[in-house]
């Protein structure tokens, strides 16, 4: 059985991978030839349209999104349970002025085992992207988080990527690789990553206002996840 959510794009190309390939849009260079096996979903956002998808992360998923000229794509994802799966989102900002955002808040519990990959390709000028990911890990949750903003040559663009994880259990684990691939000088692009737990200092303030430890803790975690 082939892994039904496998996608291979530019740097991850295997030599004979293309024979399963399906060219996802004729206007794109070979480099962006993707492999979409079963389970792949392609969404096109037509020029000047806004599309919003809300998703509950619950299963393996591959999403490929084309965003046309002046169009906006917003993706909101959340999870509040035990999840095992793989989640890939590839957003191609294909038209001038296209915008995309990914906003995720995860609350992983139990024996969650998740592999998340967010990639944004800036293929046209005046494109803007934003990725904001927040995750809380409890129990034995394990998350692999990868993200990448790629900007091609002669592109004027802006990209922002931020991922923060709160680790609330001794056995929770997180591995993260937030990458940038930039081949143009007219860009502003940044990314940030933080992994931490709730410190005694942070707990001190709500506790000094009369909350007990458990509620103070909850307050801080809820505050963290509120995007």
């Amino acid at each position: 059985m082939k892994n039904n959510t496998k996608i291979i794009l530019n740097t991850y190309v295997e030599p004979n991978a293309f024979k399963y390939g399906l060219k996802i849009a004729s206007s794109f260079s070979e480099e962006f030839l993707g492999i979409i096996a079963k389970g792949g979903e392609v969404i096109e956002v037509a020029p000047n349209e806004t599309k919003k998808i809300e998703n509950n992360l619950s299963q393996s998923k591959l999403l490929i999104v084309y965003v046309g000229e002046g169009a906006t794509f917003e993706y909101v994802e959340s999870s509040k349970s035990q999840v095992v799966g793989k989640n890939d989102i590839h957003i191609i900002l294909a038209g001038r002025g296209a915008k995309a955002s990914i906003t995720s808040s995860y609350d992983f519990v139990g024996e969650s085992e998740v592999d998340i990959y967010h990639k944004i390709y800036h293929e046209a000028s005046h494109t803007i992207s934003k990725i904001d990911v927040r995750g809380v890990l409890k129990d034995k949750a394990h998350v692999i988080y990868r993200s990448d903003i790629a900007m091609g040559k002669e592109i004027e663009a802006k990209g922002e990527e931020s991922a923060s994880f709160l680790i609330l259990s001794e056995e929770a684990r997180v591995d993260a690789i937030p990458s940038l691939d930039i081949a143009s000088n007219d860009v502003r692009c940044s990314h940030s990553l933080s992994i931490k737990d709730i410190s005694r200092d942070e707990l001190f303030y709500p506790m000094s206002r009369g909350l007990d430890e458990e509620n103070s803790y909850k307050l801080l975690v809820d505050g963290f996840l509120e995007i």
Binding site: I167, C189, S190, H191, S192, S194, K196
Partner: peptide, 14 residues
């Protein structure tokens, strides 16, 4: 990261 009590931060700008 395999530990709970940590403080990891990463920042990059291009």
């Amino acid at each position: 990261n395999d530990n709970k009590r940590v403080n990891i931060s990463h920042e990059a700008k291009v």
